[in-house]
Design a protein around this nucleic acid. Structure first.
Lengths: 172, 172
DNA sequence: TATTGTTATACTCTATAACTATA
DNA sequence: TATAGTTATAGAGTATAACAATA
């Protein structure tokens, strides 16, 4: 590890002293140095995902919908009749995480659960009509959010998606 | 929202039925369709970050160190004398989140806290010698992890970092 | 014996609100 | 009045282990 610069100490020692990029500093990074952190993919991935997720939650705002439910509903939508364990593997979550999540969606009348005839241990999942309606509504906000990300990424989007998928696949 | 394909139902209905890419399916996505999710930057960002973070935690393994502590220690390393509130803004966490985190690092003897002479409300932070030692040790594992990410990203790394930083900055 | 799903339980991360001590 | 930091508290999200039912 190497030399922290003395100016930084000065900045930190007088947090009231502000100059230059006022807006950026007020709601952001102040004058903090990140050093090598700046070059780590892992760190930047985390920063971007954190910012994007918070922006999404802000956008959903009141609409009393928990952000994490969205992907689950989408997966059920595209894979009606999927079982809980397959769903769990698809989203990389333990079955004990999946159960209460689905109970919640079920209580809200958004999904239907049916025992599988050919294997009575399994439960198959489908969205109810109401579930489809809510999902469509949610999807409008997701699209809005992602259009924003699209504008930020610009022409780099295809390359970005390619690398992100590569990372997810390689570390699964 | 549109037509879920009937083959998917068949796959989901018989989770025991396996074919083709056995290894990939066993620890992954099975045959689940993601539809438009595939094209959302937000979704792919989450998948990649989730996979990378879990891989990092796996790598740290036993070493009893909580992954989230690393960035905080790095920020203090590069900005000795930084105050808690500035730190909090830098990592986008509320002060009530920062306090117990620092108490923990302090209990472990990794950081020193000193009241700021010019404003006695503030506390300045530095790493102890032990803190620097532990950070250096941690950093070795982080580098190992990120080299793995580097290999996955390959030549796309600079472009990736650029977009990720752009996203984080724009949505802050 | 192995798998599906449920439950009990616990741990991490996070924030809001109310507080104190300073400014 | 406003800010720095602490505390109490609560709510997400997650996992491990033990279990019942079924295969």
């Amino acid at each position: 590890m190497s030399d922290p610069s003395p100016q930084v100490r000065a900045v930190a020692a007088k947090p009231g002293r502000r100059s230059g990029r006022t807006a950026a500093r007020a709601r952001g990074n102040d004058e903090v140095k990140l050093g090598i952190l700046n070059e780590f993919i892992g760190f930047n991935l985390r920063q971007a995902q954190d910012a994007a997720f918070r922006a999404f939650v802000r956008l959903l705002g009141q609409r009393d919908f928990k952000a994490g439910r969205f992907a689950v509903m989408m997966v059920i939508h595209y894979n009606p009749g999927i079982t809980q364990s397959v769903l769990g593997r698809a989203i990389a979550r333990d079955k004990s995480t999946v159960t209460p999540l689905l109970q919640d969606l079920h209580r809200q009348g958004l999904i239907a659960r049916q025992p599988l005839a050919t294997d009575r241990r399994s439960v198959t999942l489908t969205l109810t009509a109401e579930g489809e309606r809510v999902l469509a509504e949610l999807l409008r906000h997701v699209r809005e959010h992602d259009r924003r990300l699209d504008r930020i990424a610009g022409a780099a989007k295809p390359a970005l998606l390619k690398v992100l998928k590569k990372i997810a696949a390689a570390l699964r």
